[in-house]
C-alpha cells in the first residue's frame, strides 16, 4: 500500500519532470528570440560588422530551440530564449561599436587631409603675399631709380630719404634777397616739371630754407615766398596743383654752419621732396 503510493508519486514526479503530462504551448519568448535574430541577420550592418557576435546569437537561439524540441521544459526554454535575445542585442551593440570605430578611422584620415590642405593653402598664401610685396618693392625701386636717373639728367642730386626722394636746388635760382625766379632757373625747373609730370601719382612738397642772416621773421617769409614761387612755376608748367604743396622754414634746419660764406650758401636752398 505504502509502496504503491510511493511508486505512483514517483511516476507522477518523473512524468512532470519530463513535461509529458500536458503538451505545453510553445513559449512566446522563443518566437521573440527567433524574430529578433532573423532581423539582426538581415541587417547588413550587423552581418558585416559583428559576425562573431551574430553567430553566438544564432547558437543561443538554436540551443533554446533544441531544448524546446527535446524537453518541452518551459522554464528552461524561456530562460534560454531570454539569453538568446540578449545575444542578439549584444551583436547589435557590437556592430554599432564597429561602425563607430570605422567612422573614427575615416574621420582621422579626413582630419589629416583638411589639416594638410590648410597648411598647403597657408603656404601658398604666404608665397603669394611675399610675391606681391616683392613686386611692390621692385616697382618702387624701379620707379625711384628711373626718377633718380631722370633728375640726374638735369644735374640735380637727388638722395633717398625716409620721406622719399629729396632734391636740393641751390640759391642760384633766385637773386639775393629776392623771391622771383632768376631767368637761368627756368630751364632747370622746366625739366623738373617734365620729370614730375611723368610720375603723376607722387606727392611733391617744396620746402624753402635760408641762412641765418637777417631777422627770423623775414627769413621765414622769404623762404615761404621762394617755395611758393617754385610751386607756382611747376603748376604753370603742367604739374597738378593738388599734388604739390609749399612750406617756408626760414633758418631752421641748416645743412652747413652759418659761420662761413660757403656754409651760408649751402643753407640758402629749396628742397623738393618727392614722396614715395
Amino acid at each position: 500500500m505504502l509502496l504503491g503510493l510511493a511508486m505512483s508519486t514517483a511516476v507522477g514526479v518523473s512524468l512532470m519532470g519530463l513535461g509529458c503530462s500536458h503538451i505545453p504551448a510553445r513559449p512566446v519568448a522563443l518566437e521573440q528570440a527567433r524574430t529578433a535574430f532573423a532581423q539582426a541577420q538581415q541587417d547588413p550592418q550587423v552581418a558585416t560588422n559583428a559576425p562573431v557576435a551574430l553567430r553566438e546569437a544564432e547558437e543561443a537561439v538554436h540551443r533554446a530551440e533544441q531544448t524546446w524540441e527535446k524537453d518541452k521544459d518551459v522554464r528552461e526554454v524561456q530562460n534560454l530564449a531570454a539569453v538568446a535575445e540578449r545575444r542578439v542585442e549584444i551583436a547589435r551593440a557590437a556592430a554599432e561599436k564597429k561602425t563607430a570605430e570605422n567612422e573614427l578611422a575615416q574621420l582621422g584620415g579626413e582630419r589629416e587631409r583638411v589639416l594638410l590642405e590648410a597648411r598647403t593653402r597657408e603656404a601658398e598664401r604666404a608665397q603669394r603675399e611675399a610675391d606681391q610685396a616683392y613686386q611692390q618693392v621692385r616697382v618702387v625701386t624701379t620707379r625711384d631709380t628711373q626718377l633718380e636717373q631722370e633728375l640726374a639728367a638735369f644735374q640735380a642730386n637727388a638722395r633717398q630719404t625716409e620721406r622719399g626722394l629729396v632734391l636740393t636746388l641751390s640759391d642760384v635760382l633766385f637773386g639775393s634777397g629776392q623771391a622771383a625766379l632768376a631767368p637761368g632757373a627756368m630751364h632747370r625747373l622746366q625739366m623738373l616739371a617734365t620729370v614730375l609730370k611723368a610720375h603723376p601719382e607722387r606727392h611733391v612738397t617744396i620746402e624753402g630754407y635760408t641762412d641765418s642772416m637777417g631777422s627770423e621773421s623775414h627769413n621765414l617769409g622769404l623762404s615761404q615766398r621762394r617755395a611758393e614761387a617754385v610751386q607756382d612755376f611747376l603748376i604753370q608748367n603742367g604739374v597738378d596743383a593738388a599734388r604739390i604743396s609749399a612750406h617756408g622754414y626760414g633758418e631752421a634746419a641748416p645743412v652747413a654752419p652759418n659761420g662761413t660764406e660757403a656754409g651760408r650758401q649751402q643753407n640758402r636752398r629749396v628742397e623738393v621732396v618727392i614722396a614715395r
Binding site: A53, R86, E89, I90, A93, E96, K97, A100
Partner: peptide, 8 residues
Amino acid sequence: LAETMAEA
C-alpha cells in the same frame, strides 16, 4: 550587453 553598449 552593458559593457558592449557602453563601448559602442
